[in-house]
Nucleic acid binder design. Structure first.
Lengths: 113, 113
DNA sequence: CGGATCGTCAACCGGATGGTTGAATATGCG
DNA sequence: CGCATATTCAACCATCCGGTTGACGATCCG
């Protein structure tokens, strides 16, 4: 797996891991809390977190005996950029993007078109 | 693998399959021609194409004894939309986004910060 | 018809993946 | 100190994955 995209897409291919990422979107969490909603052992979730970390999708920081997990946007961005090359069919003007644009530019921004 | 995203991301996780998609970006191709540049058997490439097809990333159409492969943008777009949900926390740093911003606002845009 | 080309199928193999359990390693706390 | 909590490690297991080879079904063409 030399290409980092291999690890990134492989990490995203598992529904448990995608669910974890969604959870982390709302808040940073400790490993035990990440594992709570899943019907599997803590060790299994811990391994998922290792995979996400190696893919660069999350970062883990140990404070005391608790290891905190937070999203790391870089990897997702790289994957997104790669996919963007195929987006020529339908350019980037997704709803989320436009909403973001509006928020980012604030009220006084004048749209070009 | 009930969630279609499982199949899509799993398909994208393999470098051979991503290379195939890139090739198809330039032109529709027959299976044999898709296989040509790869150092593996035709059967192996054929299996990759099945995986890409099941993921909805490409479509295959048989004309005569030749099976043509073409990109199908829907699946990639679904994956992209899912990922877009993670772009909201630090979007301004994204290279692609900045390019998008620049293109969208044109030359006279003043950056907020 | 009969041979060549296109592509898949089937069986097989080694290695990766996703899960389990139980022991081990920190760290916090009374 | 000594116990509870947080997390990982190690071994193990079943299944999936990516590749191989050889046989097969289809289709074109001389």
């Amino acid at each position: 797996m030399s290409d980092p995209l291999d690890a990134i897409f492989a990490a995203l291919a598992d529904p448990t891991r995608r669910a974890i990422l969604s959870m982390l979107l709302e808040d940073d969490m400790a490993v035990t809390d990440v594992a709570a909603p899943f019907d599997m052992s803590l060790a299994a979730v811990s391994k998922h977190l290792v995979i996400l970390t190696r893919a660069g999708l999350i970062a883990q920081e140990k404070r005391g005996r608790v290891k905190w997990c937070k999203l790391d946007p870089d990897a997702m961005r790289r994957a997104s950029v790669w996919m963007q090359g195929f987006g020529q069919f339908e350019p980037v003007n997704l709803d989320a993007f436009e909403r973001f644009l509006a928020a980012e530019l604030g009220g006084e921004a004048q749209k070009a078109e």
